[in-house]
C-alpha cells in the first residue's frame, strides 16, 4: 500500500466509524433511530457544535487550542439578548439605543470576534501559550456574562430573533441551514484562500512558514478571531432556540468541540485535517449522544463512553503520526 492510499484510508476512518455506529443503531432500534424526525433532531442538536468546531478546527490546524469558545458563546448570546430586550442607555447624551434584532445579532457577532481577537493578541504579542490564554478568556467571558446579566436569564426575545434558532425553511431548521452555510464557506476559506493555506502551513511547520515570509502572528490572530466569531454565531443560535440567554449556557462546550475536531481526524499538533472531517466528528458525537439516549444508556455511562471514544481517537492520531 503506497503513502497516498494510506492517507486516503486514514481520512476515511471517521466516515467509516460514523457509518458503523449508524448501522449498529439502525439494527438495534430501527423504529426510533431511523425516523426522519430523529435524524432531523440529530442535525439540529449538532448545529451549535458544528459552528464551534469549525472555528476550533482552524485554531487546531495552526497548532493552537481554544478553551474559551463556550464562554464566548454565552457572552455573545447574552449581549445580543440584553441589547434586544433592554437596549443601551446613554445617560450622558440623554438618549437610549433600542436595538433591532439585526442590530442585536451584529452586536453579538462583534463581541465574539473582539474576544477572539483579544485571545489572538495575548497569544501572539504577549507570547502566552494558547492553553493558558484561552483558559483565562474562559473565565473572563463567563464573568462578563454574569456581570451583564446579573446572573439571571434574559428571556422573551421575540419571534424575529427567535427565527434563527426556531425557524424552519423548506422543512429544515434554520440552525441546520446556518451550519451548512458556514461549513461550505469555511471549507472554501480553508482550501482556496491565502489565509486558509497559511493556516495549514503554520500548523505544519511554523518555522519554515515564518522563514518563507508569512506573518504567522497575523494568521494566528485571524484564526482566533474567526474562532470567536463562530462561537458568537453558535451563541446566537442557542439563545434564539431557547428564547433565553442563559448565563450558564455553554459550560463544557469546548470539550465537545475539541472532541469533534479530534475524532474527525484533525491532528492536535496542527497542519493536518479538514472542515468536512470535523463535521463527520460532530456527526459521530451527535449520533452517539442520540443513540445512547435511544438505547436508554444512563447519562453517566454516556459520559464515560464519549470520553473513551475521544481517547481512542487521539491515540489513533498519535499512532498514525508515529508511523508517518
Amino acid at each position: 500500500m503506497n503513502a497516498n492510499s494510506r492517507e486516503l484510508l486514514k481520512r476515511l476512518q471517521p466516515l467509516a466509524a460514523l457509518a458503523l455506529i449508524m448501522v449498529a443503531l439502525s439494527l438495534m432500534r430501527p423504529e426510533i433511530f431511523l425516523t426522519i424526525g430523529n435524524l432531523r433532531n440529530i442535525l439540529l442538536q449538532i448545529s451549535v457544535n458544528v459552528c464551534l468546531s469549525i472555528g476550533m478546527t482552524l485554531v487546531i490546524l495552526t497548532g493552537g487550542i481554544d478553551l474559551s469558545v463556550g464562554s464566548i458563546l454565552a457572552f455573545a448570546g447574552a449581549v445580543a439578548a440584553g441589547l434586544l430586550k433592554d437596549g443601551l442607555t446613554l445617560t450622558f447624551f440623554g438618549v437610549a439605543l433600542q436595538f433591532t434584532p439585526f442590530g442585536a445579532i451584529v452586536a453579538g457577532l462583534i463581541v465574539g470576534f473582539a474576544l477572539g481577537w483579544f485571545n489572538g493578541i495575548v497569544i501572539t504579542r504577549l507570547k502566552v501559550p494558547p492553553f493558558i490564554a484561552t483558559l483565562g478568556m474562559l473565565a473572563i467571558a463567563r464573568g462578563l456574562t454574569m456581570l451583564w446579566t446579573d446572573g439571571h436569564p434574559i428571556t422573551n426575545l421575540g419571534p424575529v430573533f427567535g427565527f434563527i434558532g426556531m425557524g424552519i425553511w423548506l422543512g429544515v431548521p434554520m440552525p441546520v441551514w446556518i451550519s451548512v452555510a458556514l461549513v461550505l464557506l469555511f471549507y472554501v476559506v480553508s482550501r482556496n484562500t491565502t489565509l486558509g493555506r497559511y493556516i495549514y502551513a503554520v500548523g505544519g511547520n511554523e518555522k519554515a512558514t515564518a522563514y518563507s515570509g508569512v506573518n504567522i502572528n497575523r494568521v494566528k490572530l485571524w484564526t482566533y478571531a474567526l474562532g470567536g466569531l463562530l462561537a458568537a454565531v453558535a451563541g446566537l443560535i442557542i439563545t434564539a432556540r431557547l428564547d433565553t440567554a442563559d448565563p450558564k449556557v455553554g459550560n463544557g462546550y469546548e470539550l465537545d468541540s475539541i472532541a469533534a475536531v479530534v475524532i474527525g481526524g484533525t491532528s492536535l499538533s496542527g497542519g493536518r485535517g479538514s472542515i468536512f472531517l470535523t463535521v463527520i466528528g460532530c456527526l459521530i458525537i451527535g449520533v452517539l449522544n442520540n443513540g445512547l439516549s435511544v438505547l436508554n444508556v444512563p447519562a453517566y455511562w454516556q459520559l464515560v463512553i464519549k470520553g473513551l471514544v475521544l481517547v481512542a481517537a487521539v491515540a489513533a492520531d498519535r499512532i498514525g503520526a508515529k508511523e508517518n
Binding site: 437610549a96 439605543l97 442590530g103
Partner: peptide, 12 residues
C-alpha cells in the same frame, strides 16, 4: 436594516 433606533431617555 437599521441596527438601532435612538430615542429620548424619558420616552424609552
Amino acid at each position: 436594516f437599521p441596527l438601532f433606533h435612538v430615542v429620548p431617555l424619558q420616552a424609552a
